[in-house]
């Protein structure tokens, strides 16, 4: 074993260990920067009374389809907006815009997950859907998006019955961090070998509080329960009184006026 660095590898070169090297302490979290951006995003969502949802899944589980089906049902009831994360193409954002809801596409290129910094910039291009929902469709991947907080209020993991009922135990990092599990493509259940109870049991073992919705984005079966849950989540947020809203506006106006005065553009 290397006595200098304590590693167990006897083969490795010891260049740099001897002589005038010194040890410095660092103790910095790898996710410190992302977490700082996530905190900013979260504060912004709360200030604007936006329910932000981070949708994660394997590729092809039906996230975009679920979003268009959800938007159709909620369009007249809640303001909504979508951030679409994909490695390539703007196709999914186009699919969302066809529903009449604003969408911003983030192309991550080789990156296999969204991060809080990218989401923060995407938000600059959006009018916040106050009192409503911002859906963030993450890149199709159940591995590293687990580590990257985007500032969302709820993390929603989508899986489809064609993927196998042991997904939660295969991707425990993701499922333990999700608040909601959607089992999609319920219309295909008769054609596949998928044990719904086993899947839900695995998910709840990782997170006993997991909300579960079984639905088909294609046929609409089970969509109503999901949509009602979304509305209930927003009603808490929308309940801020007009008085409070006026007060925030007044504060903001006062702040802007004082800045204008400082800049000498306005007489006091």
């Amino acid at each position: 074993m290397c006595t200098v660095c304590g590693c167990g590898d006897e083969e490795h070169k010891h260049e740099g260990h001897g002589g005038n090297t010194r040890q410095v302490s660092v103790e910095t979290d790898l996710l410190a920067r992302n977490d700082a951006h996530a905190r900013d995003n979260r504060a912004w969502f709360e200030r604007e009374r936006v329910l932000a949802l981070n949708l994660v899944s394997s590729p092809g589980s039906g996230k975009t389809h679920l979003l268009t089906a959800t938007i159709e049902r909620l369009r007249d009831r809640l303001p909504m907006a979508v951030i679409e994360g994909d490695q390539q193409t703007r196709r999914d954002a186009d699919r969302i815009r066809q529903t009449g809801v604003p969408a911003v596409q983030i192309n991550t290129g080789k990156g296999c997950h969204l991060d809080a910094h990218g989401v923060g910039h995407a938000c600059e291009a959006l009018e916040p859907p106050r009192g409503g929902i911002l859906f963030i469709e993450n890149v199709g991947n159940l591995v590293c998006p687990a580590a990257f907080d985007l500032g969302e209020a709820r993390r929603v993991v989508v899986l489809s019955v064609t993927e196998g009922d042991d997904k939660p135990f295969k991707y425990p990092d993701m499922f333990q961090s999700a608040h909601v599990m959607i089992v999609n493509k319920l219309d295909l259940l008769p054609h596949v070998d998928f044990d719904m109870d086993a899947c839900i049991e695995q998910a709840r073992r990782l997170n006993p509080g997991m909300e579960v919705f079984q639905l088909s984005a294609r046929t609409g079966q089970g969509m109503e329960a999901w949509v009602q849950w979304l509305e209930a989540q927003c009603s808490g947020r929308g309940a801020i009184s007009d008085g409070q809203e006026l007060e925030t506006l007044r504060q903001r106006v006062a702040e802007l006026e004082s800045r204008l005065q400082q800049a000498g553009l306005m007489k006091s």
Partner: peptide, 13 residues
């Protein structure tokens, strides 16, 4: 769940 850079061996070369 921690992920941290703990310490380094460094020099001025």
């Amino acid at each position: 769940q921690e992920m941290q850079v703990k310490d380094l061996q460094v020099s001025d070369e």
